[in-house]
């Protein structure tokens, strides 16, 4: 479903917090905070991820200089069962909350839903956030952390990080002008260690439909960002779109920028926190600085559970897209 907002929804403020390994990567000095202790001073991984979210919200409120009470609504989610990391962070935050789950596409989902609430006049602002934590994801979806196993070459590394973005009805830094709600796509990939391959068709489907319905061409955008396809998924996305006669020469995957070549992450990064932190630490600052004027942010999610994988099911995936423009680009039209 294509959404054209009546009036561009403003993004004035954002924040990101990341873990140790992310803090050793290329984006190290762009996060608002990197935390060397992956436990974040807590005694369980789940509490650590809740703390990660709380800190990220804290940074955003501090930068924007507003009180929590002035936030109208929060939309967000994470990868833990029943999205407890987010819900538990909201227990202390006590603002109206919409919990979302579309796996790693949650950040784009939150942005497009939040923009609907703001554009519709139901909220003056909406706080959108998503997080993931390597350790909560690993123990839930794979094996215990101390279990000795070799990662396959197609495996991706779940990002420990949280990104948050505040949407408002008016502003000047960046604007969401349109969006595409994705469809669930499944081309039969069953290997849970090859998420990029599973998700690439969903990204291709959403990008293709958005370009069709908005009447634009891929080359019109400065960069088309995908959330966490990694190296394998990116190659497959190019190939899939090539068959649809769409040439993707301006594509960057967030999963390929957050870690360096020598960080031993096989096919790249993944997780809700991957797209969310890269958006808040790298993409939005570039739009504010005028380096980028018109981008697509396409976050992809693999909608599997450990049970469905063991039952031999293939992996259904989804991709949501938001079009973010600079002030200059918005005024042009």
């Amino acid at each position: 479903m294509y959404i054209k907002y009546k009036k561009p929804v403003a993004i004035n403020c954002w924040a990101s917090v990341a873990g140790k390994k992310e803090g050793e990567g290329p984006l190290a000095d762009k996060f608002d905070e990197t935390v060397a202790d992956d436990y974040f001073g807590k005694d369980t991984w789940e509490k650590a991820e809740t703390e990660l979210q709380s800190r990220c919200i804290g940074h955003l409120l501090h930068k924007k200089v507003i009180d929590a009470q002035d936030i109208d609504v929060v939309l967000g989610g994470d990868l833990t069962n029943q999205i407890t990391s987010t819900s538990f962070a909201m227990r202390n935050f006590a603002r109206p909350f919409v919990g979302l789950y579309n796996a790693c596409s949650t950040m784009a989902e939150a942005l497009l839903m939040g923009a609907c609430l703001v554009d519709g006049g139901f909220a003056d602002n909406a706080l959108c956030l998503a997080s993931s934590h390597f350790c909560t994801a690993e123990r839930q979806f794979r094996t215990p952390l101390d279990y000795g196993g070799k990662r396959t070459p197609t495996a991706q590394w779940t990002v420990t990080g949280c990104g948050s973005v505040l949407l408002e009805s008016a502003g000047q830094n960046a604007f969401i002008t349109s969006a595409q709600i994705g469809r669930v796509v499944d081309l039969g990939v069953t290997d849970a260690n090859n998420m990029g391959a599973a998700m690439a068709p969903a990204a291709a489907d959403t990008i293709k439909r958005f370009l069709q319905e908005s009447g634009t061409k891929a080359q019109e955008y400065d960069v088309i960002y995908t959330g966490d396809l990694g190296k394998v998924g990116s190659i497959l996305l190019w190939q899939l779109l090539e068959k649809e006669k769409i040439v993707l020469s301006n594509h960057t995957d967030c999963g390929n920028v957050i870690f360096g070549e020598k960080q031993n992450v096989q096919s790249g990064a993944s997780g809700c926190g991957c797209g969310a932190t890269v958006l808040a630490a790298d993409i939005l600052p570039k739009i504010m600085a005028g380096e980028l004027n018109n981008i697509l942010f396409v976050a992809t999610g693999a909608l599997l559970s450990p049970s469905t994988t063991m039952q031999g099911e293939s992996i259904p995936c989804i991709a949501h897209l938001v079009n973010i423009k600079s002030k200059k680009e918005v005024q042009k039209k």
């Binding site: 070799k150 197609t154 068709p201 190659i235 068959k243 096919s267």
Partner: peptide, 25 residues
């Protein structure tokens, strides 16, 4: 989409790097 499951399975095999069997062994 113009790609079916069978074609995609072949594309995935082509794009996915293989394990370094000799080194692993």
């Amino acid at each position: 989409m113009r790609t079916n499951k069978k074609q995609y399975d072949r594309m995935v095999k082509g794009a996915s790097p293989k394990s370094k069997v000799a080194k692993n062994c």
